[in-house]
């Protein structure tokens, strides 16, 4: 330290300056203020406690698990959306799909009846004696009546539907022999 001019400190004066306190305590809030400021400037990271680290790890695991399960469920849902599954959703299928279903069911119905007819030999002694064949024929008639009923509800003023429905309602009681003459030709008009 250099002291000069006529105001050179005496040893006692120098000692008096040295006795001045070297430290003082600012307000306790200042430390928090400084730390907050440094955090805001990203010069300090938030204090991390063990429980907080464990919590963060658990939250990370839970998020990963939820992501995995969500992905799996989404994959299964998308895989399950086959054409057949979609056809079971009338609301989404639309009128075109429903009409196609009717056509397919009708074709299957006629094909089944043709197969039944091939096994039905009205002139033979076995005709009408096979329980299975009779049951098949009755099932076909019941389906035909049910179909005529649905068609009549759709359009009650259609004369063809009304005539068919009326004729089917006059069908002999269950278990009676068919009234068809041998060799006669049966026509189904609406398929």
């Amino acid at each position: 330290m250099t002291h000069d001019m006529d105001t050179e400190l005496t040893p006692e004066e120098r000692e008096a300056f040295l006795r001045l306190p070297r430290e003082a305590a600012p307000s306790e809030l200042l430390e928090e203020r400084v730390v907050r400021n440094l955090r805001a400037r990203r010069l300090l990271s938030p204090r991390r406690t063990p429980w907080r680290r464990a919590g963060q790890m658990a939250a990370g695991l839970a998020a990963a698990l939820a992501l995995f399960l969500g992905g799996t469920m989404l994959g299964q849902w998308r895989a399950g959306r086959t054409p057949a599954g979609a056809a079971q959703e009338p609301a989404r299928a639309g009128a075109a799909v429903t009409a196609s279903q009717v056509q397919q069911a009708g074709s299957a119905y006629v094909a089944a009846l043709a197969s039944l007819h091939a096994q039905w030999k009205p002139g033979s002694p076995e005709a009408g004696k096979s329980g299975s064949l009779t049951q098949g024929r009755e099932a076909a008639l019941s389906a035909l009546r049910a179909a005529a009923g649905e068609l009549a509800r759709m359009d009650p003023n259609d004369p063809r539907v009304a005539a068919a429905f009326q004729a089917l309602e006059q069908t002999p009681a269950e278990g009676a022999e068919p009234a068809a003459a041998p060799g006669s030709t049966r026509q189904i008009l609406w398929f």
Partner: peptide
């Protein structure tokens, strides 16, 4: 100059 707080005087 002296430090009155410490009672020291030159």
């Amino acid at each position: 100059i002296h430090d009155a707080r410490h009672g020291h005087r030159a």
